[in-house]
Design a protein around this nucleic acid. Sequence first.
DNA 1: ATGGTGACTCGCG
DNA 2: GCGCGAGCCACCA
Length: 135
Amino acid sequence: MGFPGYDPSMTVSNFYQQVYQVIQQIPPGKVTSYGRVALMLGHPNAARAVGYALSSLKTANSPDTYTSATVPWQRVINSQGRISIHHREQTAQKQAQMLRQEGVAVDEHGRIDLDIYLWEGLHLVELDDILKGKG
DNA sequence: ATGGTGACTCGCG
DNA sequence: GCGCGAGCCACCA
């Protein structure tokens, strides 16, 4: 709502793909939060669904269009500027490692300075394409 | 159709 | 800053 091209009738079935497409726009060395991704897609309260979308990404070998290899999932953290995977120690470590590898400072507690690394986000024109399914 | 489950968020104490 | 409780959403049995 409020966004050009927003069409409620197609949001459900395409939600995950839209999430992946937005995340693919995040440049290396930058991060954003689950909530912000949801907001960009016109679903201000769908932060949990965004996290769920990422957790469902399959391995790099998967034939799927979107996999953990094609979607930079590591660039999405929580609104507090911290890595959000407390139940999966291994995955959390990997995320921190991948981020440091692209120049993002992550401290031992998984904290990241959003004042420095926060991604500005998409412009309405770019969002329009994703919401219309052109991406 | 219904209820349980998360890689979420915000507000309080 | 930290832990809790309460909303919120899309998936999947």
